[in-house]
C-alpha cells in the first residue's frame, strides 16, 4: 500500500519538476582525438604506436532538470595508429599511419552544476557505431627497382576496403566532463573532455585474431542551441 502511494506521488511530482527546468539543446562540436591502441604482434621489428585524429559530432541534450541531462547524437571520429616495420638489417620496410574512420552514436547521462553563467558537468555512458573505411598513408618498400637496381619506397594515401576478417561493429563506454558558458539567449559555448574505452576489436573473433582495441582521449569545443525551454 505504501509502495503504491509512493509510486503515485513520484508520478505526480516528477513531471512538475521535469517541466519546471527541462529543455532541449542541440549543437555541434569538434576537436582533437588521441588514440591509445591496445594490440599485440608476434612479428619482429614491428612497432605500433598511438595516433592522432579528430572528431566532429552533432549532439542533442535533454535537460531533465537543473542537475540531470541525457545526451545523444552522432559522431564521426578518426582513430589512428602508427605502424613501423624494419627488416633484419634495420632498414625501414613500412612507415605509415593507419586511420580508421568510424561513425558512432553516443548516449550519456550527465550530472551538472551551475555557477553563474557557467555550467560544469560530468557524465558517463556508452556508444555503438560502425567502422566506415580505413586509410593508410605513409611509405612502404615496393617491388619496383630504380635505375640503379635499388628498391624504391612508395609514398601513398590510400582508401582501403575492410577485409572479411575485419570487424565493422564499434562499441564502447564513455566518461566525459566539460564546461559550458551561457553566451546569450541562444545557447552555450562549451569545451569538453571525453574518454572513450573501446570494447570491440578491429578484428572479428576468430582463432588467433590479432585483436586491436582503441581508447580515445578527445577534447572538443562546440556550441549548443536552446531549442526548447520550460519555465525557469
Amino acid at each position: 500500500m505504501i509502495r503504491k502511494l509512493f509510486t503515485i506521488l513520484v508520478a505526480l511530482i516528477l513531471p512538475v519538476c521535469l517541466y519546471s527546468s527541462s529543455g532541449w539543446l542541440i549543437g555541434v562540436e569538434g576537436g582533437y582525438s588521441y588514440s591509445l591502441i591496445n594490440t599485440s604482434t608476434g612479428w619482429s621489428g614491428t612497432y605500433i604506436d598511438n595516433g592522432h585524429g579528430f572528431d566532429a559530432a552533432a549532439i542533442a541534450e535533454y535537460r531533465v532538470n537543473d542537475y540531470f541531462s541525457v545526451t545523444g547524437g552522432i559522431r564521426y571520429i578518426m582513430k589512428s595508429s602508427g605502424y613501423y616495420k624494419e627488416n633484419s638489417s634495420g632498414a625501414m620496410v613500412d612507415d605509415y599511419i593507419k586511420m580508421h574512420h568510424m561513425l558512432e552514436f553516443p548516449l550519456t547521462l550527465r550530472l551538472s552544476a551551475e555557477i553563474g553563467d557557467f555550467r560544469l558537468y560530468a557524465g558517463a555512458g556508452g556508444y555503438v557505431g560502425v567502422r566506415l573505411f580505413d586509410v593508410h598513408a605513409g611509405y612502404s618498400e615496393s617491388l619496383t627497382f630504380n635505375s640503379n637496381g635499388n628498391k624504391i619506397y612508395e609514398g601513398y594515401y590510400e582508401h582501403l576496403s575492410i577485409g572479411e576478417s575485419g570487424n565493422l561493429f564499434d562499441a564502447g563506454i564513455i566518461a566525459e566532463a566539460g564546461v559550458m558558458y551561457r553566451l546569450n539567449e541562444l545557447g552555450y559555448l562549451y569545451g569538453s573532455f571525453r574518454y572513450q574505452f573501446g570494447l570491440t576489436s578491429l578484428e572479428k573473433d576468430y582463432r588467433l585474431a590479432a585483436h586491436t582495441y582503441f581508447s580515445n582521449l578527445s577534447f572538443d569545443v562546440g556550441f549548443m542551441f536552446n531549442i526548447q525551454r520550460g519555465e525557469e
Binding site: W43, D94, H136, S140, T144, S147, G163
Partner: peptide, 26 residues
C-alpha cells in the same frame, strides 16, 4: 600492383603499391 599484409589479421592488408619496370643503368 602489389600488396603485403598490414598485420596478423587474415585479411588485414596494406595499400596496393605500384609495380613498375624501369630502364636500368647497369
Amino acid at each position: 600492383e602489389t600488396r603485403r599484409k598490414a598485420g596478423e589479421g587474415r585479411t588485414d592488408y596494406g595499400a596496393w603499391l605500384d609495380l613498375s619496370i624501369t630502364k636500368p643503368e647497369i
